[in-house]
Design a protein around this nucleic acid. Sequence first.
DNA 1: ATCCTAGCTTGGACTTTGTCTAAGTCAACA
DNA 2: TGTTGACTTAGACAAAGTCCAAGCTAGGAT
Lengths: 136, 136
Amino acid sequence: MSDLLERLRGRGWRLTSQRRVVAEVLDGEHVHLTADEVHARAVSVLPEISRATVYNTLGEMVSLGEVMEVATDGRAKRYDPNARHAHQHLICSGCGSIRDVHPQGDLIAALPAGERFGFVISGAEVTYRGLCPDCS
Amino acid sequence: MSDLLERLRGRGWRLTSQRRVVAEVLDGEHVHLTADEVHARAVSVLPEISRATVYNTLGEMVSLGEVMEVATDGRAKRYDPNARHAHQHLICSGCGSIRDVHPQGDLIAALPAGERFGFVISGAEVTYRGLCPDCS
DNA sequence: ATCCTAGCTTGGACTTTGTCTAAGTCAACA
DNA sequence: TGTTGACTTAGACAAAGTCCAAGCTAGGAT
Ligand SMILES: [Mn+2]
Ligand SMILES: [Mn+2]
Ligand SMILES: [Zn+2]
Ligand SMILES: [Zn+2]
């Protein structure tokens, strides 16, 4: 069983074939899939799985902190199983491919007190944009 | 006439009442409105303006670099007339309010060569999250 | 001043992405 | 093996945005 499923079971989850398949789709490679892409891959293994269940399962994994939601454009959100290692994203403006990146320095510290407007800052996300080798 | 309209006319735009109203909605205060919010304000001045025209006009302004699209969550994009001064955004996780912020340092330089995967980097956007004084 | 026409606007159909619900199913525990 | 509450399903619904054919008009030409 995958690490992800193991952790989910440890949190009291009922282990259904649907959840197993969604976890397997996310667990394999290092991916940034939309909900419908996850559904398409899940269907090829478990043809009767519904879109609603994929959305539910992804949402639950996000709530549990096991999966990260990545919303970079105005299109579909992407689901990232690499939630336990803080990282940022680099996106090709040509083909949309996404890479994980790890910028140096402390993003939050880069925001001066005079620019915080009394907010309690909890996090920061960066999206780098550019052209990948194939597109440039 | 607003600065924004002046610049648009200089680019050969036909100056219709619809475009005038959309420009006025964005030009007044320093705002981050959704397309439907722009439409609602526009309708109060020009009741027959259509949603399609608001979307078209906003899209054209973005193409011309006069307005910036801000897509921070999976919800509606926001349109930002402050496109000519580079800045980032700080968003309240409680009420969704948005402030412009100016972090120190060079974001792009913070990405080491070994983390660029051969991409030609063209830009970077940061979204800071936190709780505003009212929500914390 | 009036005409012409390419460019603009419109309402509504359509698409994409996501949420919700009522009815049926089943994993896990006794 | 039976019970039951959690889970899944199909499909209706909603929000955000795109597209189109038909009609209108800003602004240059006459
Ligand atoms: Mn990632
Ligand atoms: Mn802004
Ligand atoms: Zn590319
Ligand atoms: Zn707030």
